[in-house]
């Protein structure tokens, strides 16, 4: 409990935490709203096949996930960058306990940020769609609550993976590079690879798999929601384990 309190003090007492939290929500909602705004003039009949207003409202995750990942990474890299990690380890020599406390506190904060981002994005977009006379989703519709919960979990897992990436590379700029690669580049370029490799990336790359979890209307060639979020969770756990091992073994 003492350690959690300490890590919470560290996290809340730097401006960058709050800037990241606010920009994750603001950017996520804004991008989602922008994403549907060009559909507003169209008639319901013109909407593409498999219209999924829920998944459509979470398009802003594309950017929000990057900020949330960085929020996690910064909680570790800031200590390495300033050298404060040395002092932290004099107070808490058990590196596992220190990293675990950090992981728990960051996960708590990112869970909240993720929930707000998801709910606000969904609400804003559904209100826009409804007022434009387009089919919108409601919380009562089948699968919608499940999709919103999965979306929240998706962003939270990326925050946790961010902590692990920060622990692996120990630098903010390198963390950003890894996150941009894993979250944006690979999902965009991987499926274009030839043959089975491309198919694998389109289905099983943990980020792409995780994104399938918050669709209400299944998209061809992607995983089922449960399997998708499971793969992302396993991947996040794997990166966390790696970050933990490296933190234990390296000299500070």
């Amino acid at each position: 409990m003492n350690l959690l309190r300490s890590e919470w003090t560290k996290l809340r007492s730097v401006r960058s935490t709050w800037i990241a939290a606010l920009s994750a929500v603001a950017a996520g909602v804004a991008l989602s709203v922008l994403g549907v705004s060009d559909l507003l003039g169209t008639s319901p009949a013109e909407l593409p096949q498999g219209w999924d207003p829920t998944a459509e409202s979470l398009k802003g995750f594309l950017f929000a996930q990057l900020v949330i990942g960085m929020l996690g990474a910064l909680s570790v890299t800031a200590e390495h960058g300033t050298g404060m990690i040395g002092t932290s380890l004099v107070f808490v020599p058990s590196r596992s306990r220190l990293l675990a406390a950090k992981g728990v506190v960051v996960t708590g904060v990112t869970l909240l940020v993720s929930l707000v981002t998801t709910v606000l994005s969904f609400t804003a977009v559904q209100v826009m769609l409804g007022s434009a006379g387009l089919p919108a989703a409601g919380l009562g519709d089948p699968g919608v609550v499940r999709a919103l919960a999965a979306g929240t979990l998706y962003l939270t897992l990326i925050g946790l993976a961010g902590v692990a990436i920060g622990s692996l590379v120990r630098s903010a700029t390198q963390s950003l590079a890894v996150l941009v690669g894993a979250l944006l580049l690979v999902p965009a370029l991987g499926p274009g690879l030839p043959g089975a490799l491309g198919d694998w990336f389109a289905r099983f790359w943990p980020i792409t798999a995780g994104q399938a979890s918050y669709a209400v209307v299944p998209v061809d060639g992607t995983l089922a929601p449960g399997a998708g979020i499971l793969i992302l969770a396993v991947a996040a756990a794997g990166v966390t384990a790696a970050g933990h091992v490296v933190f234990r073994l390296r000299d500070i």
Partner: peptide, 14 residues
Amino acid sequence: LDARATHPQRTAFH
């Protein structure tokens, strides 16, 4: 260990 090893955004109190 190193007097400079503090987060520049954090107050002395925190």
